[in-house]
Design a protein around this nucleic acid. Structure first.
Lengths: 135, 135
DNA sequence: TACAATTAAATTGTGTGCAATAGAAATTGA
DNA sequence: TCAATTTCTATTGCACACAATTTAATTGTA
């Protein structure tokens, strides 16, 4: 079953990342948030959710944990106070350098060459888009 | 990133399955348990966990919820009382017929032909095996 | 300008996942 | 034989993930 192959691969990734991300003190979903914020700081909860396919019920408590540890700040948008913008602190930006080794470890562990990785990624992207489009 | 493609596809699958599995009253991980038990009833917690790549901390409470609803029974193995065997009740076996439509809906929604599905599944299987082997 | 509809976050409740640990049963080994 | 070790399940604690609901702010429209 394709669905189970995806399910099992996702857990394998999470298990693989866990000890490697513990070195910088974040979980895998938190790492994804940082990947986004390192590229584009100050996104709203909504924008972050759109990029990661998560809703506020997941993101809000996740961000609050990061805020409690001083890695990000939450600021109401001045023009639209419904929105909350997530901004990295200096410490949050500093994590980036510590996390540089992680993608390299993953690349080495997949046992797949670049072409195979690209094919898989493309197939998964199409699959996700189709599933999301099927409501 | 390959890991994110897997992560996003897994959530898309879960979201896709949710409303369709609500018709038979189970979650996606519970559905996976039934897929296994419909093929081979009376497995131990350990054996079930090995097939689904889950540990007892996940399976025990999941099974207890199914037991509370009368879909499975938990029985200590007579020869080795450390083991607990999970057996379907008549009602649990009866779910199988109700669930027949689900895989068809999924197949229709992926938007991929059989060859593409097979390639993806194979790639994901290799990926999972490699990641699990990398400790 | 009122005020209903919409939007953004946060909250609540349920159900996974997994690490760490505990406790009982079975196995091993001197 | 029986103490040490291993195996199996259950429990605890923490962190997602999402549906449904709530609250506050904004927008659309008469």
């Amino acid at each position: 079953m394709l669905c189970f192959a995806v399910y099992a691969a996702e857990h394998a990734f999470t298990r693989f990342y866990k000890p490697r991300l513990e070195a910088i003190g974040v979980t895998y979903p938190q790492y994804l948030v940082f990947l986004v914020l390192w590229e584009q700081d100050g996104l709203t909860v909504k924008a972050l959710g759109k990029k990661l396919f998560l809703d506020s019920g997941t993101i809000t408590p996740l961000i609050k944990r990061l805020e409690a540890r001083g890695l990000v700040q939450r600021q109401r948008d001045e023009d639209d106070e419904r929105q909350v913008r997530i901004k990295l602190t200096a410490e949050g930006r500093g994590l980036r350098a510590k996390a540089l080794a992680v993608p390299l470890q993953v690349a080495g562990a997949t046992g797949l060459d670049q072409a195979a990785v690209d094919r898989l990624r493309l197939g998964l992207h199409q699959l996700r888009a189709q599933l999301d489009a099927s409501t």
